[in-house]
Write a protein that binds this DNA or RNA. Structure first.
Length: 832
RNA sequence: GCGAGAGUGGUGGAACUGGCAGACACGCAAGACUUAGGAUCUUGUGCCUCCGGCGUAGGGGUUCGACUCCCCUCUCUCGCACCA
């Protein structure tokens, strides 16, 4: 009987299921571990990236379970969103039908991988018993002013027919889902006040020591804190003024112009106060600039466009008049949408004045050098230096100049110091059908009215038909839209926007903890016991999306008193898995380099697929798919299988007792004993401390090789051999659970390996009988000797120098120095 | 431009606080068993001018000793980017 994954794997999956092997309950007496993998979006079948994600997660869950942790390991589906609507149009079906059948298929795939999930905790975000609590959170936030509606220029994706949050505009300003260039539109939309948490989201990053530096850096960058001064600039001959923000208030004397964004309301105001021709010119320019997409705005290669309004601004510090321009490189979304133009010390302003012939006034010089000639400047000098041309502030180094001038501004009431963030409030409304309905109505009498909690969930009408042009199907549901005002009972219309799907994924890991709970989103005691997630595994693409939103949500839940007040962060450990690539590129249909997980599992079995994925590269690096490598992994499992099968008589006859190292005399056996225990030691550390899963597999291969080379010739030998084989199966089981269970059973065990205790390395068996030390001459290796371990520096040097071959090497040379490193080497430094 | 990470055999990748570079595997080569081998087993496998040298992107430095620490340069990947 040869290794047959096709027979073994279904057998064990059935046993695990029947024995409810992976169902866990809260148990205060046990240490807990929350192992979480990012839940999939069920758009068709799972791909290799999923297989990798869930192989890593399942390994960790199984490993910690064997190490005595009470492990919660759930799975679910992020099942609202655009692809379901697109598929509904294409396949002439309903998004719900498409989604739910895909989920069924994905569940089969996950099960075929042998993942140790607690299936009772399954969450599908598109079902009312889940999304009603998203609605409930929304209402809690609305009460607190954390959810609000406002008119703003927002990101619009024409293909998706909806607005997008800032985080969902990626790359060169394209939609994260469909790569369509995003355009700006003025619309009234729902927002969550994530900016209230900007500082805390930033501060807490320092405490996330279990996160990769890369993700922390990306989030810091995304939140984008900067300190500066916000101040007023009066417009000459008017009663108007413009607010500007700068981080370099020390360069205030260098202003040669003021610029505002094309969308700035002041553009209209100034147009209104201009003569007719100028007015049309301004309005036309502003309209042209603001209607361009992000791509158009940046694609010109930095060539800046501007228009002089004809108005003058008054520099608060010296009363100088400078022109006010509208410029396309000023962003309405950042700061105040207006800047002071200091070309000498800002490259963008410099480029702008060079194009339009405005002046340059240097106000910072390099220490020890004269003030540069503005005519000869080739670029702006943005580095710190010494203030000049700045009245009484001349001679101050930049940081001091910033402080002194900022103080002056505050004293005189011209402005105040302020901290700005790049992070924007989270735009959560979507003009889409397949999402969580926003629980609000519009009443002609009462205005905007929240749905009372008792009326939740506001169910998504399932009889809606997604229009072929991709519009919002809810608009075609008058029976659903027209309702009664909860306040006055009069006619009212439901909000037809739905929530961003990232709302669904912002709290699902709480819901897992209290499956089926009907009185709230989750039980506080469940959350208190299980949260935070100890290890979260998923792709890095969510660094500035889901991982920021979920952090925000957790803080809100904590502040609302739903989760413990001390739960400020949802995920203490984060493992960002690398991509799966083949032939040098990410697997994609267009490149035709996709490998289907189903086919691999069918051909080789899940154990082989898992082993290859975990062995081929460290989890956080990209994984190069190799068909040959899969063969190799499969061959290894065949060897493990034969190791047990071919030696079954010896293994069966051996007692389960372990012979301690001190009672083993034969050097070969002592070597095997040491190999067994050093393997346990290394594998445990590789998994637990380093998450170096590939080297853990390598160690197990070495153990297998060592065992294959050993022939158990007597009772003690068989006993040691059995210890080795069982250790191998125990340590390999989180990687390849099915085949290990099968072999464990063949060895006569009645219990499940999944619940077995992880082996402990015997320290006595780790110590080496002898160590190989090398003799170096001037750092070059010349000889090797086997010596007893633990020799002191002196003893080791003496021991090595007494060797015949060592004497010969050194004979006749002038020895300058001898360096000995215990158990490692002796380096003889010679002259000549 | 800013930030993060990487560069080691033909390939994927190892190397703990500086101490035998290339673990483990893939591939390749030779052999064994075979009617057969894309099965299995054994052996070998960094490079060269091979009793000796050279080798961890390139150049310098620190050290008895550097893939590892320091400085400079190059290349690649990822993220952000007229952010005031």
């Amino acid at each position: 009987m040869a290794y047959d994954a096709g027979a073994i794997e279904p057998k064990w999956r059935k046993i695990w299921e029947e024995r409810r092997a992976f169902e866990t309950e809260r148990d205060e007496s046990l240490p807990k571990f929350y192992c979480l993998e990012m839940f999939p979006y069920p758009s068709g079948a799972l791909h290799m990236g999923h297989l990798r994600n869930y192989s890593i997660g399942d390994l960790i869950a199984r490993f910690l379970r064997m190490n005595g942790y009470n492990v919660v390991h759930p799975i679910g589906f992020d099942s609202f969103g655009m692809p379901a609507e697109n598929a509904a149009i294409k396949m002439k079906t309903h998004p719900a039908e498409w989604t739910l059948s895909n989920i069924d298929r994905a569940i089969e795939q996950l099960k075929s991988m042998g993942c140790s999930y607690d299936w009772r905790r399954l969450v599908k975000t598109c079902l009312p018993d889940y999304y009603r609590w998203s609605q409930w959170f929304f209402l809690r936030m609305y009460e607190r002013g954390l959810a609000y509606r406002k008119y703003a220029p927002v990101n619009w994706c024409e293909t998706c027919g909806t607005v997008l949050a800032n985080e969902q505009v990626i790359g060169d300003g394209v939609c994260w889902r469909c790569d369509t260039p995003v355009v700006k539109k003025g619309l009234e939309q729902w927002f969550l006040r994530i900016t209230d948490y900007a500082q805390e989201l930033l501060d807490c990053l320092d405490g996330l020591t279990g996160w990769p530096e890369r993700v922390l850096a990306m989030q810091r960058n995304w939140i984008g804190r900067s300190e500066g001064v916000r101040f007023n600039i009066a417009i000459a001959d008017t009663d108007l003024s413009i607010e500007a923000f700068t981080t370099r208030i020390d360069t205030i004397y260098g202003i040669t112009f003021v610029a505002i964004a094309a969308e700035h309301p002041m553009a209209n105001t100034l147009a209104g106060r201009s003569a007719e021709a100028k007015r049309d010119e301004i309005l036309d320019f502003a309209r042209r600039m603001s209607s361009r997409s992000a791509i158009e705005r940046t694609a010109v290669g930095g060539d800046k466009m501007g228009l002089d309004t004809g108005f003058k601004a008054i520099n608060p510090v010296n009363g100088k008049l400078v022109p006010i321009w509208i410029a396309d490189y000023i962003l309405m979304e950042y700061g105040t949408g207006a800047i002071m133009g200091v070309p000498a010390h800002d490259q963008r302003d410099f480029d702008f004045v060079r194009k339009y012939g405005l002046g340059v006034i240097p106000v910072v010089r390099v220490a020890g050098e004269p003030i540069p000639d503005p005519e000869k400047m080739k670029s702006a000098t943005e580095a710190d230096g010494i203030s000049c041309n700045s009245d009484e502030f001349d001679g101050l180094p930049t940081p001091e100049a910033i402080r002194k001038i900022a103080e002056r501004f505050e004293e005189r009431g011209w402005g105040k110091r302020e901290t700005q963030y790049r992070l924007r409030d989270w735009l959560i409304s979507r003009q889409r059908y397949w999402g969580t309905p926003i629980p609000m109505v519009y009443c002609d009498q009462c205005g905007l009215v929240p749905i009372p909690e008792s009326d939740l969930p506001v169910e998504l009408p399932l009889d809606a038909v997604v229009p072929p042009n991709g519009g919002n199907a809810l608009l075609g549901c008058p029976d659903w839209i027209n309702t009664k005002c909860p306040k006055c009972g009069g006619p009212a219309r439901r909000e037809t926007d739905t929530m961003d799907t990232f709302i669904c994924s912002s709290w699902y890991f709480f819901r897992y903890l209290s499956p089926g709970f009907a009185e709230g989103p989750f039980k506080p005691e469940d959350s208190k016991y299980w949260m935070p997630v100890d290890l979260y595994i998923g792709g890095i693409e969510h660094a500035c999306l889901h991982l920021i939103y979920a952090r925000f949500f957790t803080k809100v839940l904590s502040d609302l008193g739903l989760a413990s007040p001390d739960l400020r962060e949802p995920f203490t450990g984060l493992l960002t898995q690398g991509m799966v690539i083949k032939d040098g590129a990410k697997m994609s249909k267009s490149l035709g380099n996709v490998v289907d997980p189903d086919e691999i599992i069918k051909k080789y079995g899940a154990d082989t697929a898992r082993l290859f994925i975990l062995f081929a590269s460290p989890p956080d690096k990209s994984l190069d798919w190799s068909d040959k490598g899969v063969d190799g992994a499969h061959r290894f499992l065949g060897r493990v299988f034969r190791l047990v099968e071919d030696n079954l008589p010896a293994l069966s006859s051996a007692s389960a007792a372990k012979i301690p190292m001190r009672d083993i005399k034969d050097p070969k056996r002592r070597g095997l004993k040491r190999l067994i225990h050093s393997t346990v030691d290394r594998v445990t550390r590789d998994i637990r401390d380093e998450k170096q899963l590939n080297t853990a597999v390598a160690r197990l291969m070495e153990l297998c090789n060592g065992l294959s080379a050993f022939s158990p010739s007597d009772r003690d030998g068989a006993c040691l051999f059995r210890e080795g084989v069982e250790t191998l199966l125990l340590c390999l089981s989180p990687f390849c659970p099915h085949v290990c269970e099968e072999l464990w059973e063949m060895l006569g065990h009645g219990d499940m390996l999944a619940h077995a205790k992880w082996p402990a390395a015997e320290t006595e068996a780790l110590a080496a009988d002898s160590v190989t030390v090398v003799l170096q001459i001037n750092g070059k290796v010349r000889e090797q000797y086997s010596v007893e371990p633990g020799l002191s520096r002196e003893a080791l040097a003496e021991r090595v120098m007494s060797e015949e071959s060592a004497r010969r090497r050194i004979d006749g040379l002038e020895v300058v120095k001898v360096i000995a490193v215990p158990d490692k080497l002796v380096n003889v430094v010679v002259k000549g």
